[in-house]
Design a protein around this nucleic acid. Structure first.
Lengths: 115, 115
DNA sequence: CTGTATCCAACTCGATACTG
DNA sequence: CAGTATCGAGTTGGATACAG
């Protein structure tokens, strides 16, 4: 049995399932797995998404120690989001997700142009 | 670009993210990755969950071709759920999820007894 | 045992407007 | 640019009751 924050888990995997029980957080990790990105850039890729939602999700990921936030003292302001070490360790998960999805798409989907 | 059912996706991974944007479907896959289970058995592990919700999720997973449903003509009725071939191909994803979670739990959680 | 039918609380997330 | 504030629609999923 595992205690984490206030919660208890029978199996450690339940931590992951609870962590990524929404539509956006793992997608954000996926986008950041190719390098750091700015707020606006992420917003563009996750469209439609509101500033409020994106801001909230990024804050959650930071509290989970999966991403890091760096503020540059510029005008206009620049903020970069990067995977933390624990976030980077999700890369094998992401890789398997991508591999599985490509295979699934090959079976059930139709490819228009290239990916 | 990929067309699947009615939707279009830029990247195949988006299929996965949309497929598992809820709290339960990937957890069910995880439970079934150790072998087939009955309705009641799944319900017990996923507590608290209602029959309606579980039934709905299992139907969705079947429509996605990830699990298979087998009915035995017995009294009382017995229904077994098993991963389909495409569901079994999610095993590497699950394995990486488990590995990552154990590492994460070791860093941030406290283990009471054994897992 | 394996569901289905209603009802509803809670949550997620988008639309819009505004701030430093 | 990078947020925050308010509002509200839609969805998820639990509680309860009932059926084959």
């Amino acid at each position: 049995m595992i205690k984490l924050n206030g919660n208890t888990y029978q199996f450690s995997a339940e931590i992951f399932f609870e962590m990524f029980d929404d539509r956006l957080k793992l997608m954000i990790i996926w986008y950041l797995s190719n390098g750091s990105m700015r707020f606006k850039e992420l917003s563009k890729y996750l469209q439609p998404i509101t500033n409020k939602t994106l801001s909230s999700k990024l804050k959650q990921l930071e509290e989970l120690h999966l991403i890091e936030r760096e503020v540059f003292a510029e005008v206009p302001p620049r903020v970069e989001y990067t995977l933390s070490p624990h976030g980077q360790q999700l890369k094998p998960v992401i890789d398997e997700v991508v591999a599985w999805s490509q295979h699934y798409a090959k079976t059930f989907g139709q490819t228009i142009n290239e990916e």
